[in-house]
Design a protein around this nucleic acid. Structure first.
Lengths: 213, 213
DNA sequence: GGTTCCCTTGACCAAATGGTCAAACCTTGA
DNA sequence: TCAAGGTTTGACCATTTGGTCAAGGGAACC
């Protein structure tokens, strides 16, 4: 018998495995993003995925394994918008494009944003290493780019770190605090995102456009 | 015997009751703000309060009662900074003072901010009524004030709702996403709040100051 | 000093939870 | 068609959890 090496690993091998792991991860995203890790149960996830609990545990060895798989997957894509901010573009437009990409992600992937928010608010027990590693490195790199732009006079002087924080917070707010936003604005569908886009464009354009001259 | 009417109510009557209800609420704030409602246990709270679990339940009838007491208490104070924004002040300075007050609250009361954030991210199951009531009313009132300022030319044109959202998100970010901010900046204590203050002052001043003339 | 509340706790309970396991059920390729 | 491996599940388990209860320990007022 020994250690069960037949347990499916990260990469699905059969069609059924692919279908079910996807269903599980999608269901888990629903549940974890709404209740946080400790507030979620395997039964909830199993039910949402249309599987029995032992069946869940056939595909993932434990609750934390499901969570980790989600977080890992998320981290892959979460930083892409920032990575795309290139030093060789027009500074103000590069940053504004980043803002819009983030806002778009908040609209398209609110569950992912909330999964992340839940994790951070609760002290980031599972991703502290990624924050102090990957994320920190990327932010430092882009902060240097921004400082370069400022030095060249193409951007008004700003603290690049707090600029990035304010971009994250203002855009993710529309996903993480969605119920509050909707409770106040009572929008039809995502109608309010157009206004948010216009507002954030103005906010950061005024902040970043260097004095004429 | 009948229904136990001797159970302490909201208002502590004796010195011991006052001391213990306060200890419980403080401990519960610690725990709930870190793990969310469903992720927190009575044992954790009891231990943090230095009481036994049955003793906890002598002062509060249930877990939800503790949570509700905290949320109610929080809601009392949370909206104060916005209430203090007065129509008869100098517009830009009134709003900037509001921003600073919110930032100060994020620094002084991060647990309260995270308690709130946890609740909202998870769909605000217990405070939806307050959001659509008290909060919505207050925001609409202040939005009208801001629109008045804009009409008078003392403020650059902005969507007042999204302005308020951006103030909430940028300031609360320093409490709710504290571990991320610290993971990236590695500040000593609260040193980074000075920079945040300067950044946000600039951000909103540029946004709100009307074109010269 | 005694009585009357107030306060505290050990022992207990039912339900929920993460996880296991052996047996049965399917697919698939030869 | 049949074997071999992949898939599914009912039954089960130990632990945790929110909550109860009766009994004992204190403070305070008479």
């Amino acid at each position: 018998m020994g250690i069960n090496r037949d347990t499916p690993g990260r990469k699905p091998r059969t069609r059924i495995q692919k279908k079910n792991t996807e269903a599980i991860l999608d269901a888990a995203l629903d549940v974890f993003s709404q209740y946080g890790f400790r507030g979620s149960t395997l039964d909830q996830i199993a039910k949402a995925a249309g599987l029995s609990k032992p069946n869940l545990l056939y595909y993932f060895p434990s609750k934390v394994a499901i969570h980790r798989a989600l977080i890992d997957e998320l981290m892959q894509n979460w930083l892409d918008p920032l990575r795309k901010m290139q030093a060789d573009g027009e500074p103000v437009e590069e940053i504004l494009a980043y803002v819009l990409r983030k806002l778009e992600m908040a609209r398209e992937f609110p569950r992912e944003s909330r999964l992340f928010a839940n994790e951070i608010v609760q002290g980031a027990p599972n991703i502290m290493d990624k924050i102090e590693g990957e994320l920190k490195t990327l932010v430092e790199e882009k902060a240097a780019v921004i400082n370069g732009w400022i030095a060249s006079g193409a951007l008004a002087p700003v603290d690049p770190y707090h600029l990035i924080f304010s971009i994250w917070s203002t855009t993710q707010h529309y996903a993480d605090f969605d119920v509050q936003v909707r409770g106040i604005l009572k929008p039809e569908g995502d109608a309010h995102f157009k206004d948010a886009e216009a507002y954030l464009d103005t906010l950061f354009r005024r902040m970043l456009t260097p004095p004429a001259g």
